[in-house]
């Protein structure tokens, strides 16, 4: 079951996790000890902003400059799934 992440939670990438762009497959990937995640474009944008400073709500606001119709709940849901995969931790 996916846990719930609040909009004021502050996500950050865990140690040992690397976010990169796979030139061959032309996709954003997250490399971590247990596996590989292949992100779509918006997920990559969210992960890039998981800096341990911005909250989920602030990430949504930032992405609002680039994307139309950003849903903060989508971001919270993604972060919750990344926490489950032990790619991201949240404070708060």
């Amino acid at each position: 079951m996916t846990s719930v992440v609040a909009l004021d939670a502050v996500p950050h990438i865990r140690r040992g996790v690397k976010c990169t762009y796979d030139q061959i497959r032309e996709s954003h990937v997250v490399l971590f000890p247990e596996g590989v995640l292949v992100l779509n474009e918006t997920a990559a944008s969210v992960v890039a902003l998981c800096d341990g400073v911005r909250s989920v709500g602030e990430i949504a606001l930032s992405l609002g400059d680039v994307y139309a119709g950003v849903e903060p709940e989508d971001i919270a849901g993604l972060v919750a799934r990344l926490v489950e995969r032990r790619v991201v931790d949240v404070d708060g």
Binding site: L37, V38, T42, S45, V46, Y67, L78
Partner: peptide
């Protein structure tokens, strides 16, 4: 000065393959 309207990309639900 005329600013072109900003074209924002359409939000797609963020997802990943595992």
């Amino acid at each position: 000065e005329q600013k072109l309207p900003e074209v924002k990309r359409e939000w797609v639900k963020p997802d990943f393959r595992d």
